[in-house]
């Protein structure tokens, strides 16, 4: 664990360097899509994506998972998730950036209940990070319920992949 933490710490430095090079990342919702007549959001998102950076710098061997999986109708973090989240918490504690926690459910059950379930899962991740010392103001929770599945198939394997929280 200690060794892993050190590795993660080193990678974090690289991530930070990359992040500082692209600090102009937009933080407002972009409503300039073609042919829109959409009222712009009154809430500023205040979120900065680190996606892409981690994919290229963490690498497959040492990548700390950014997706956390759950049992059906449950929002309890498993041991693998808490181990990964401790590493994220460590890093976020030292490098406070905004993080978006997207909660998801599988297609079974009703859509609005699954919205609530996705939120409960993302809250479980948020609460764990806070308990590990991360500033809660950095963490935004959004539930997608079953509306944005990782796998479009309709079987146990797909459902297991879809019951998740993604850290972005």
């Amino acid at each position: 664990m200690k060794n892993q933490l050190l590795k993660y710490g080193a990678l974090v430095t690289v991530v930070m360097a990359l992040l500082s090079g692209c600090s102009s990342t937009g933080t407002e919702t972009d409503t300039a899509g073609a042919g829109t007549s959409v009222p712009s959001s009154q809430v500023s998102t205040g979120s900065v994506s680190t996606e892409g950076v981690t994919a290229t710098t963490l690498g497959t061997d040492t990548a700390v998972p950014r997706v956390f999986y759950f049992e059906f109708d449950r929002a309890v973090l498993n041991a693998e998730s808490t181990a990964a989240l401790r590493l994220h918490a460590e890093w976020l504690h030292a490098n406070p950036v905004n993080v978006r926690l997207e909660g998801h459910a599988d297609e079974r059950g009703t859509r609005e209940y699954n919205m609530a379930l996705g939120e409960r899962r993302a809250n479980a991740v948020r609460d764990f990070l806070i308990s590990e010392g991360v500033n809660g103001n950095l963490l935004e929770v959004i539930s997608y319920g079953e509306e944005s599945p990782a796998s479009l198939d309709s079987n146990e394997t797909a459902w297991a992949l879809n019951r998740r929280v993604e850290m972005k």
């Binding site: 933080t27 899509g33 829109t36 994506s49």
Partner: peptide, 12 residues
């Protein structure tokens, strides 16, 4: 790097 924000393509 992925552009954050939501590229909307919503039409009514």
């Amino acid at each position: 790097m992925r552009k954050i924000g939501f590229l909307l393509s919503v039409c009514v």
